[in-house]
Amino acid sequence: MSELTLLLIRLAFLAVLWFFVIAAVGVIRTDLFGPRTAPAPARKPVKQPRPVSKPKKGEPRQLIVTGGPLQGTIINLTETPITIGRANDATLVLSDDYASSRHARLFPQDGQWIVEDLGSTNGTFLERSKVTRPTPVPLGVPIRIGKTVIELRK
């Protein structure tokens, strides 16, 4: 067995050992940074509808999470409604004990975005007031769901 082969085996073994550690970290990544699936589905449909219906001036284009564990998350708004809650199939998946699995829904109507509470336990708040029926959301007004605060932006 030549020196070179042994050296290569040695380096390969160390590399594989570290690859194992990295693979293990990859498995738990979702734990540390939350599921990556939340913003991803919103990004894809953006590409097709954008040329068709360009948002007019004054219409919100983005939903931004301004408070809570998901702070900084941005979802581009399209024609599709946005669901928020702890359920896995929600557009914005919250890991928040104070949110219900299907907590609230945001949908566009006549150029406006409407927020609707889906019978959540702890309620949805538009600014200070509890949302009891579908309510239009002005730009930059905070919507509070559990610990999470979201806003519509241009």
């Binding site: 073994f13 160390l14 050992l17 570290w18 194992f20 550690v21 293990a24």
Partner: peptide, 16 residues
């Protein structure tokens, strides 16, 4: 036999 690189990998496994 595995050097510092190997020891660190093993300590990482314990840490995980």
């Amino acid at each position: 036999e595995l050097g510092l690189t190997g020891l660190m990998a093993i300590l990482m496994v314990y840490a995980l």
